[in-house]
Design a protein around this nucleic acid. Structure first.
Lengths: 357, 357
DNA sequence: CTGAAAGCGCTTACAG
DNA sequence: CTGAAAGCGCTTACAG
């Protein structure tokens, strides 16, 4: 990688001229410009972005930060965010941090170095106890980086709260559970949970679990801990494979008296259904199962999933408008915007049959 | 975001001292160090990465570039790449470029500014005709950036070829098709294709389509164009929804004489199966269907998919070792490394039944 | 242990 | 139309 200096001496001009030519400015002799550009191509010269950013005003680019596992939903969200930002004259760039234990500094560096106008956190950030998420949220507030949480909440819990947008997890779970109750089910289980996590944690599965229990209680049904399918592997609360294994384990441990299972997400529902199938329990004839998210693989599955569709385009739209307000330094947006999900009736649920097996 | 200068004056020390304190160096008075670090925290000071990179030697970070749609497979690949790189003392950072028409400059800037030791292209890059991919590949070669294509090939076709690693698409497709033939099938269709794309293109679906046809011919079966399921939407060759719609359209157009369908990937297979189901055609009893990739949703689907598992961990491992060689400036690695896939027998295929419906 | 100074690779007024 | 110069925010020998 050669530098502007080397290219300048190759072309026999000053670095100012090279810079102008590379930026396609009008105030250069067209021939000179062409010559420089050709030389750049020939020698593989590309202006160093880092150096460039030092002088230029912040670009209209937004860092979208995803940490840990991605999911089709987040990827859909990314596309929608990108679209929304684009219509506002911004660009999105995804920064994925694989390591769930990535320290706060990694993210900070990403944001500070990148010359972004703002940042969006897509999906959950931080370790499981939320300590890192809190620290990061505070730190970014001090740095005065415009920031919005998308699909998740700000865990900092302080007065520094950044705005956030996500589906109404609790309400959505209530909606889905109610459907089962309306269909006559009363013995309803939930998959997947981790009993070691405190109920006030804001994990997505926990919010949905809380909604599930609330719906039951509202209908006078006391949740039965025996019908909670505990994850075999607590590090993978949303994995099909883990849902399958956990359900198998639950089924083997003893015989349960249930007619429906609410799942924390579509992936878990697919794993649950497959496990039931493998044990000869047919869905929805013998047991009804619901999902949450509204992903393609649930829609085209057999049976297709009764689920709650996340209006990801709306979520993205609200996220972007919150962010733009933050960038403009406008009045504080509401701390959290919960978007209603859309109930979808699939084939994985059916009215309680009276023949009781 | 305050700068080093401002923090220095706040602390009443020189910028040199601030710099040293922020980098946690030993040659600072411990008290001074602590004071500076506390002030940094308080005022939200984070050293500007761009400026920092200008002085520091290249970091041991690898840019993993994904462009356009992602897939669970690519995300798995990312995790594996990250693991492999980590054991070598490198770090991976994913740069996702949503826009399929993103120009070459965007990528170049990403790489040049980021201070990376090298880059990995994960999944297909560029517009559909491969023009951009070629241009970018050449450009990166001129910039002398160590680069490996993962899960795809270098399309530049020139002597500048970068190494690439991917599953043996043609061989894998032959393997899967052969299985159907061994089961007695001779009337075998393929989903999804785009008839406007030249056969020598290296699209993944095209490579698999070619393998499919080769397997048929090797067994004396002439491929029947009537059994090619053409995509309704050519921009989404690997989408479940598109596979469903395209298969529906194909089924409606007229009645076909077939007993099996090879799909270009698992997602397409799921869409195909669902469409067949919806038309009362049961899988595998009446028609066998195969996938390709070996993803979770195919494994836990009903019926589970007969497919070819991509050994993504091996692919990642070879990619990393190729990249390390390139970084070391070692002898040129072989231009392309094709990794054997692993055949998986699921429930979506069955021997040809003699009762012919 | 600390500071003044050079310099990383650029861009952009400022002169000419 | 072009070049010399200042400066973006850092790091790091070099003196002290």
């Amino acid at each position: 990688m050669i530098t502007i200096k080397e290219l300048a001496s190759i072309c026999g001009v000053s670095i100012s001229t090279v810079s102008r030519a590379m930026n396609g400015r009008e105030d250069v002799n067209p021939e000179t410009r062409k010559a420089v550009q050709n030389a750049a191509k020939k020698y593989g010269y590309v202006p160093n972005t880092a150096a460039r950013n030092l002088k230029r005003p912040p670009s209209r680019t937004i860092a979208v930060i995803v940490q840990g596992e991605t999911s089709p939903l987040l990827m859909q969200g990314l596309v929608k965010l990108d679209e929304s930002l684009r219509t506002e004259g911004y660009e999105a760039i995804l920064c994925h941090v694989s390591d769930r234990r990535a320290n706060v500094a990694t993210i900070e560096n990403l944001i500070v170095g990148g010359h972004y106008s703002g940042a969006i956190f897509l999906g959950r950030y931080g370790d499981d106890d939320g300590v890192q998420a809190t620290e990061l949220s505070k730190s970014l507030a001090r740095m005065k980086v415009p920031l919005v949480f998308c699909t998740t909440k700000d865990f900092s819990g302080s007065s520094l709260r950044h705005p956030s947008v996500s589906v109404d997890d609790v309400g959505g779970s209530i909606r889905v559970t109610k459907h089962l109750i309306e269909q006559g089910h009363t013995r309803i289980g939930f998959a997947l949970i981790n009993p070691h996590v405190p109920p006030e944690s804001e994990h997505v599965w926990m919010l949905r679990f809380q909604g599930f229990k609330r719906a039951l209680r509202e209908h006078g049904i006391e949740p039965d801990p025996d019908l909670e399918i505990v994850a075999v592997d607590h590090s993978q609360p949303y994995s099909m494979a883990n849902a399958y294994a956990s359900t198998m384990h639950w089924l083997e441990s003893r015989s349960h008296d249930y007619t429906a299972i609410v799942s924390s997400c579509d992936a878990v529902a697919v794993g649950v259904i497959r496990a039931l199938n493998d044990e000869g329990i047919r869905v929805p004839e013998m047991v009804s199962v619901t999902g949450f998210d509204g992903l393609d693989f649930g829609r085209y599955a057999n049976p297709s999933l009764t689920t709650l569709i996340q209006p990801i385009d709306l979520i993205a739209k609200y996220t972007v408008s919150s962010l733009l307000k933050a960038i403009a330094g406008d009045s504080p947006t509401p701390p959290h915007h919960a978007v209603e999900g859309e109930f979808y009736l699939g084939e994985s649920t059916a009215p309680l049959s009276r023949d009781g097996d």
